[in-house]
Simulated assay, not measured.
Amino acid sequence: MNIGDRILLAHGSGGKLSHELVTGVMAPVFDNSILAEMHDGAFLNIKGVQLAFTTDSYVVKPRFFPGGDIGKLAVCGTVNDLAVSGAEPLYLSAGFVLEEGLALAELERIVASMGLAAAEAGVQIVTGDTKVVERGAIDGIYINTAGIGAVFPGVHISAGRVKPGQDVIVSGCLGDHAIAVMSERHGLTLPAPVVSDCAPLAGMVKDILKIAPQVPMLRDPTRGGLATALNEIALQTGMGILLEETAIPVRPEIKAVCDILGFDPLYLANEGKVIVLVEKQDTEKVLAAMKSHPYGLHSCVIGAVTARPAGQVGIKTAIGGTRMLDMLTGEQLPRIC
């Protein structure tokens, strides 16, 4: 594996270079059975209590965008990582790195947004840290959040439980977050307003697991989008995944922007969507539960797990052909963090 001798922006895009950086540099040094799961959160057994633990850092630009801001994003992102680990989010930490000269009113607005998001998600921010660096060292504010949650009884989210014949469900339209951030950053006038899907998904995931605790895999398609998230699952499981292009939900305004600028919505970042792999006999009841939730109204089946091609993701196109989908290669465009 050759990741080069310098860190590139693409190493932080959540795609192939990010994967190679983690597996080639970090994982061999930190190697342990918990880390080896390579899920969105770590599974911990502490004196018989099953917990999930996760952490993430947020550097989005601009800090405020339609539908959210860096504070809401930090809370929702960590809450969602716990949720897709099959856990009920309970407690978060919040670490702030602030640039000298940041307007206090801006910080107050971001902190207030975090409070509202935490209240909606039903979590408490119980510890944290603040550092201030000299002007120009960072872009205003960076936030790190970590979270801990209790794994629901009988739930076991694991790549080892993914098998052929399971349906692949996504909870709604793709690409809203990436295009909302890009349009705000560059001052674009779009055919219709685009709002980020940034939202805490713990409530919807709890409803899913209440009726189908046997769900084998959950994942949120953030950096690198749907295609990269599914490739990660395929690589971990050794299974194939075959999607139906015509079944994948994308809003017309998002598709229009992608057509004009040459983006593929399958690789656009999302911050309020979940991928659910489910046994066929559970598909309808899981869909019903998701569609009854405000954040899952447009949930639909978009494909299935297959035995072949092993470790790869394919998509049946609208004209009847099949093409392979790789992980995001190179830098994510539009860049969202």
Rank of each mutant, 00 (worst) to 15 (best):
R6I: 15
R6Q: 15
G12R: 00
S13A: 15
E20H: 02
V25L: 14
M26C: 06
F30R: 08
I34M: 05
I34V: 15
A36C: 09
A36L: 09
M38P: 00
H39Y: 08
G41P: 01
F43L: 11
K47V: 12
Q50K: 14
T54K: 00
T55Q: 13
K61S: 14
D69R: 04
D69Q: 00
G71Q: 03
G71M: 03
K72N: 02
C76A: 09
G77L: 01
V79P: 05
N80I: 08
L82Y: 00
A83S: 10
V84I: 05
V84H: 02
A87M: 05
E88A: 08
E88K: 11
P89V: 13
L90D: 06
Y91F: 15
S93N: 05
A94N: 01
F96H: 02
V97D: 03
L98T: 04
G101N: 05
G101T: 01
L102A: 00
L107P: 07
E108N: 02
A112Q: 06
A117C: 09
A117Q: 05
I125Y: 13
T127R: 05
I143M: 04
A146S: 14
G149L: 03
F152N: 05
G154P: 03
V155Y: 04
R161N: 11
V162A: 14
I169D: 14
V170Y: 11
V170C: 11
I179V: 15
V181Q: 04
V181E: 05
S183G: 12
L188F: 15
P193Y: 02
V194S: 10
M204P: 02
D207Q: 14
K210M: 10
A229M: 04
Q236R: 14
M239L: 07
M239N: 14
G240P: 12
L242F: 09
E244P: 02
A247I: 12
V250Y: 05
V257Y: 10
V257K: 00
I260L: 11
I260V: 11
A269F: 06
K273F: 05
V274M: 07
E279D: 15
E279A: 15
K280D: 14
Q281H: 12
V286R: 06
M290P: 04
K291A: 00
A304Y: 13
V305Y: 11
G311S: 11
G311Q: 06
A318I: 13
A318Y: 04
A318H: 08
G320S: 11
T322E: 12
T322P: 06
D326T: 15
M327C: 09
L328T: 10
E331T: 15
E331M: 13
P334G: 06
